[in-house]
């Protein structure tokens, strides 16, 4: 797979602190974990894993527990702007592949960081990467994840930025021992706050109302129907005595209606 027989590409994976969807607790972010996994596959020991934030964060040990010897932390306050730190770090390193998640699981999660880094570094960017099937010093063959499990094959020249889709190879289990032993290289930085974001109001997410089937009724009967009819589907239709063909037709109609067959 690797033409030079050794891991000669220098890969950097950026990791952030994830958020468990159920408990809201810090965790290894789903996509970032995959970015580390893919980085390990491509570069082995040549992988550098970088985090901008607090070096004491216990979740970093979960990333390290994937078998990393060391982890680089660009020290930063919670309200800091990661972009300048990351840019400084990357422009001084000889990395030629940068992997990261699509959107962070905490904070603004706008997903802009990879784009801003790529723009500043002048590197091409691929979003939603499912796999990097082949890489050498000059270029890489990349599979992009498309909806419904589709894939697109793209060739990209090095250096490049890639954001990792949930379709990429799953992050390996994190082990306690190695995680504890990994070295954390701390790079102290000047504090750069994200001024725009400090003006925002942040509150727990309000549930979004599900759109009702909008009926712009033209007459009383339609209004009556819209107000009283069960929600679409209605549930609990049982077909017992019809012929198999009719039953199959009913299923087929439902599948068409739900647009799962096109």
């Amino acid at each position: 797979m690797l033409p030079n027989g050794e891991h000669s590409v220098k890969v950097v994976s950026l990791v952030s602190i994830g958020r468990h969807p159920q408990s809201g607790r810090s965790r290894r972010a789903e996509q970032d974990g995959r970015a580390v996994e893919l980085g390990l596959k491509l570069a082995g020991d040549n992988l550098t894993v970088v985090h901008a934030g607090d070096s004491q964060e216990p979740v970093l040990r979960q990333y390290a527990g994937m078998g990393l010897n060391a982890l680089t932390v660009l020290s930063q306050e919670a309200d800091g702007d990661a972009l300048p730190l990351m840019y400084d770090f990357l422009s001084q390193s000889d990395a030629n592949v940068l992997l990261m998640g699509i959107r962070a699981e905490s904070g603004e999660s706008s997903g802009m960081l990879p784009y801003l880094l790529a723009e500043k570094l002048g590197w091409p960017l691929l979003s939603r990467v499912a796999d990097i099937v082949h890489i050498n010093q000059r270029e890489a063959e990349v599979l992009l994840a498309l909806p419904r499990g589709q894939r697109r094959s793209v060739t990209v020249s090095l250096p490049f930025v890639a954001t990792i889709d949930n379709a990429a190879i799953e992050a390996r289990q994190t082990a306690f021992g190695p995680g504890l032993r990994a070295k954390i290289n701390l790079i102290e930085n000047q504090k750069i706050t994200d001024d725009t974001a400090t003006a925002w109001q942040i509150s727990p997410a309000k549930p979004r109302p599900k759109r009702m089937k909008v009926v712009k009724a033209k007459n009383a009967a339609d209004r009556f129907k819209a107000a009283t009819a069960k929600p679409a589907g209605g549930g609990g239709k049982i077909m017992k005595n019809e012929t198999p063909a009719e039953k199959a037709q009913a299923i087929f109609d439902l599948l068409l209606e739900e647009k799962v067959i096109r």
Binding site: P124, L126, E141, L143, L146, R148, G149, Q150, R151, R152, S153, V154, T155, V156, S157, F160, N166, A167, L255, E258, V260, I261
Partner: peptide, 22 residues
């Protein structure tokens, strides 16, 4: 720098079960 090599056929069974829509 980016060259599109086209779509690849994918088996629906490759889709992770948790994310499958059908």
């Amino acid at each position: 720098r980016l060259i599109d090599k086209g779509l690849m056929a994918v088996d629906p069974n490759e889709v992770p079960l948790a994310e499958a829509e059908f």
